[in-house]
Amino acid sequence: MRGDHGFGAVRTAARLTAFMTRVAVALAVLLAPACGATGPDSVAGKGTLVVGVRPDLPGLGLRLPDGTFEGFDVDVAAYLAAKLGAKVRYVAVLAADREAVLLDGRADLVLATYSITQERKKRVSFAGPYHVSYQDIMVRSGQKGIGNVRDLAGRRICAVAGSNAAERVVEERGVAAELVPATDYDQCLALLKDGALDAITTNDVILAGLAHRAGGGLRLVNARFNEQRTGVGIRKGDLDGCEALNRAITDLYQDGTAARLLHKWFDGTGLDLTSIHIPRFEGCE
């Protein structure tokens, strides 16, 4: 009998310990979110990610007649979403709306030639960059004498409404180029082909896409000025999401996917892909 009692006490003690351990675990679970940084809104851990991509840029983000999207940004978005273990849904976003769709929740991520700037970082956060590009110059294939931005002095360059690329040449570089206004890049292309323009200057991947669409007769000069870091726009303060995306971007470059996708979309456009520029991360803080 006494032995039984002793055993009973031990059993009670064991049960109590088990119970209190459960209490401890429950407490830990209750307290952890309050102290940890995992917000409920983080893109890390979402089942489906809504990604804003450009509908208007061949090679980068282009909406097809059937409503689907294709391009380098679209493929990168699919890769990153898969790395984060999420399904992906695309929405079209124009240059002017990139910030708004993040702020009002219409998109979780924006991969739409969204370059990282101090000004933008005040309102949104950026993972990446996932691609480093440069401002470049596109000329007719037979054009001689334009090798860098200085050579644009006295030349007619396209000033597209809503883009400051041409103005940057004149104002920041101090090169006296003649600005020819145009409503969009299609008009620039037409003007360049007609000889009413000497050059178009903007982001090299945009130029490469245009050259591709023009189907020959144009070339990039690979002047590579004004480095642009294209990042993944996310809601401000999503540290976990930003860090997860950066790890996915590291994989993108380490497993050769970045090189493969760049070749897939820009081979034959004149864009120099002999070496693949690995992006230096902006950091998530």
Binding site: L31, A32, A34, C35, A37
Partner: peptide, 20 residues
């Protein structure tokens, strides 16, 4: 950052359980 945040939350949880 990750280890810092994790350690701090486990410290906070530990503190609560120690109290109980």
């Amino acid at each position: 950052r990750r280890v810092h945040d994790e350690t701090r939350s486990s410290l906070a949880a530990g503190r609560a359980v120690v109290a109980v």
